[in-house]
Design a protein around this nucleic acid. Structure first.
Length: 744
DNA sequence: CTAAACACTGTTTTT
DNA sequence: CAGTGTTTAG
């Protein structure tokens, strides 16, 4: 049922109405956390439509595909049957390139390479350039190339500005890398912005055409745009200056990815006649939560002071929970959530647990499983990143884009067809020399005598297989996947093995079929190419299933834009949040503080900030210092020591109330910019060098154990202890707290 | 050419 | 610790 214009505004506040009904000309909406920004943009799109703006003249950019989908739905509820373009910058880039790519000599069947693919191509490029024993990792070089593209630097331009050894190396690789992508008819993530941005800059005809087409442009999360995205936005709004951007400088958390907070801060410089509307009333959180979040973000020096106001009723105080270990922490959270559900205070789905790093989800996973708490870990790519799925996807990519050499290399010998490294090198050499794709080369084996025996047969088979599969290119995606599984022998391979892992893998590839089926069912026009694109451009939150009644576990970055009644933030410790790599640089610490701020402001009713005295980190147990952000909280937060109650060993008590000097030494360390993982000066265990193999010792957490191995000296000395109950663990000798029970 | 055993290494955050 | 790359044996 279509809605009247007035209804679009009825439940909005005055500033929100102003933002919605601003018609032409530039508009900047500074929207604090929880101020109803999504609702405003959605209404604005609907309102524009009601004013008679044609749907095809509106372009709305969101930060995730999920947000785009939701906005599409909501706009559709308000104004059914519209065809407004709503997408992320990356999807927009892909869409524009598919549609207009031919004008700039791009084949529309291009493959989109993800970061893993990028690394592989960089590796190949390094080899091709004859650079081998360089200490720059392919990841780092790939990152530099990505950064160059974000700044719209072509290989030539980059080369002309590069000075030191690293940038010169990157420049060399960049050119080769780009050629390899072209040869494979592939684009990487950054190309999806870089190429459209450059095209808009250089091709005035196309630029003017698109500018005229997109009369109204809206960009959400504008504080997280990078230079390429900025360029695209600007170039689309030169003639039709109806640009509306929405954002909050305090929630800029993608600087590491090239986002430039200046884009939003300088909007009024770019558009001096811009209307600026501030939305600072918060409709989401309790006063206590806002007070805590404000107190933290206020510590940022590079920031315009800004208050968060609310009329919401007072609620529970914000709580800081301190645990003895990461496992206790996870367990404590699980128990609290269980209690809240049992007490009918919340449902499982009302809870979210945020982590700074994906590695931190491990403990939570164990604890939730043990306590029978239903949960989902929101991590989009995890499923498609599984080896078996990537294998199948390589086939699919090759079917869509037969010159995709990277996918050829991946698929050709999976399952094993006797095609080894050496044969592939011959094949690559021939393809290179004749400027053809690997697939085409594999159809000319008679010209490559160096490939013989099993490899030759295997390649011939593979070539034929792909040719046959390509015949079915127009079939529904799920049928093609089934064909791939059947005809390639991939399913047979998994079935034959009968190992547990392979049964799982089989289930996963079957799941891939289901996923393709669902994807195609949503819209009958969707092709295999669309399916592949959707997978590669999917963000972590895109996989989030709101329907399920379970606790959501996700990174703080993925949490942006969401809200939950009860929020837990895990591991608020120096070196984690703020992250280790940011501690040296005040600007980076400020970004970490914004990350914390984003997490805190997701909470509607209850907010729990957790930290632990000890943290298991890459196999080692380390002492952890509470996050500096916890010290920045107002006095009225409730600080609860969860280690002080139940379930601990007597040894732990003894240690806690132990020698004053040792404990104050921790305190003295305070919040110096020291990564938590570095062995601390002044805390050295005097016994460190005396431990030897075979000694019986007692650990404050794990109890009695035998030293099973010792190596290194001083700060590097490590000891392995086999515990009676918890297996073998490794510790840094100078930091572990042990009591020697018996000498050897 | 493959598979299995081993050594090494490196660690945020993501489209 | 895990994931990757390298070596080795079949």
């Amino acid at each position: 049922m279509p809605v009247e214009s007035s209804d679009l505004l009825a439940d909005l506040t005055f500033p929100q109405q102003e933002a919605v009904t601003h018609f032409e000309g530039p508009l900047l909406i500074l929207a604090g956390a929880g101020s109803g920004k999504t609702r405003v943009i959605t209404r604005r799109v609907a309102w524009l439509l009601k004013q008679g703006v044609r749907p095809s003249n509106i372009l709305a950019i969101t930060f995730t595909n999920k947000a785009a989908g939701e906005m599409k739905n909501r706009v559709n509820d308000l104004v059914p049957g519209n065809r407004v373009w709503i997408s992320t910058f990356h999807s927009l880039g892909a869409r524009l390139l598919r549609q207009y790519g031919e004008r700039i000599g791009l084949n529309r069947d291009f493959t989109i390479y993800d970061t893993d693919d990028r690394t592989k191509i960089v590796k190949q490029s390094l080899e091709a350039a004859g650079i081998d024993n360089v200490k720059f990792t392919p990841e780092r070089i790939g990152g530099a190339i990505g950064k160059a593209k974000n700044q719209l630097l072509t290989p030539e331009k980059y080369a002309s500005t590069s000075g030191d050894f690293f940038t010169r190396t990157v420049a060399q690789v960049y050119a080769i890398y780009q050629k390899k992508l072209r040869d494979s008819n592939a684009l990487d993530f950054d190309d999806l912005l870089y190429i459209p941005a450059l095209t808009l800059r250089l091709n005035e005809e196309l630029r003017a055409e698109l500018d005229a087409r997109f009369q109204f442009v809206l960009v959400d999360e504008y504080q997280d745009t990078n230079s390429a995205q900025y360029e695209i936005t600007r170039k689309l709004t030169l003639d039709q200056r109806n640009l509306c951007v929405v954002g909050d400088p305090d929630q800029s958390i993608y600087r590491w990815r090239g986002s430039d907070i200046k884009n939003i801060l300088d909007f009024e410089r770019d558009f001096p006649d811009a209307r600026v509307i501030t939305l600072d009333k918060n409709y989401r959180s309790t006063p206590a939560i806002l007070k805590a979040a404000s107190a933290v973000i206020d510590h940022n020096k590079q920031r315009k002071k800004k208050a968060l106001l609310t009329d919401n009723a007072a609620g529970e105080p914000v709580r800081v929970l301190t645990f003895d270990s990461g496992l206790h922490e996870a367990n404590g959270i699980a128990l609290r959530i269980k209690a809240a559900v049992a007490g009918n205070r919340f449902a499982y789905r009302d809870h979210a647990v945020f982590v700074r790093m994906n590695a931190l989800t491990r403990n939570l996973e164990t604890a939730f499983v043990q306590n029978g708490v239903p949960f989902q870990i929101v991590k989009g790519q995890a499923f498609f990143d599984r080896k078996e799925n990537r294998d199948v996807l390589a086939y699919l990519r090759l079917i869509v884009n037969p010159v995709d050499n990277l996918s050829f290399l991946r698929a050709s010998n999976e399952p094993a067809r006797g095609i080894g490294k050496v044969s592939l090198e011959h094949l690559q050499a021939y393809a290179e020399a004749n400027q053809i794709s690997l697939l085409e080369a594999s159809g000319r084996l008679e010209k490559i005598p160096a490939i013989k025996g099993k490899a030759r047969d295997g390649l011939r088979l593979f070539h034929k297989l792909i040719a046959e599969l390509r015949e079915t290119l127009e079939s529904p995606p799920e049928d093609i996947i089934r064909n791939v599984l059947d005809q390639s022998g991939y399913r047979a391979m998994l079935k034959a093995s009968g190992e547990d892992d392979d049964i799982d893998r089989l289930a996963n590839v079957e799941e891939l079929i289901t996923s393709a089926m669902q994807f195609a069912a949503e819209d009958g026009t969707r092709t295999l190419r669309d399916f592949l694109e959707q997978i590669t451009l999917a963000s972590d939150v895109d996989s989030w299933d709101e329907q399920q009644n379970c606790v959501s576990v996700m990174t703080l970055h993925a949490a942006k834009g969401l809200e939950f009644p009860a929020v837990y933030i895990v591991a608020m410790e120096q070196g984690i949040l703020p992250g280790e790599r940011s501690l040296a640089n005040p600007e980076d610490v400020e970004e970490e503080r914004r990350v914390a701020f984003v997490g805190m402001t997701r909470a509607m009713k209850e907010l729990y900030l957790c930290n632990s005295r000890m943290r298991d980190f890459r196999g080692q147990t380390l002492f952890a210092i509470p996050s500096m952000f916890l010290d920045e909280l107002p006095d009225d937060v409730e600080r609860l020591d969860q280690g002080a109650h139940g379930g601990r060993s007597p040894a732990m008590d003894q240690w806690r109330s132990g020698p004053r000097e040792a404990r104050s030494a921790w305190g003295d360390l305070g919040h110096k910019p020291l990564p938590a993982a570095i062995p601390f000066a002044g805390t050295n265990n005097p016994d460190a060098d005396t431990y030897e193999k075979g000694q019986l010792v007692q650990h404050e957490q794990y109890g009695i154990g035998t030293i099973s191995d010792v190596n290194g000296y001083g700060a590097l000395r490590k000891i392995k202890i086999r515990f009676a109950t918890s297996g073998e663990k490794t510790f840094i000798a100078s930091k572990v707290k042990l009591k020697v029970v018996t000498k050897k």
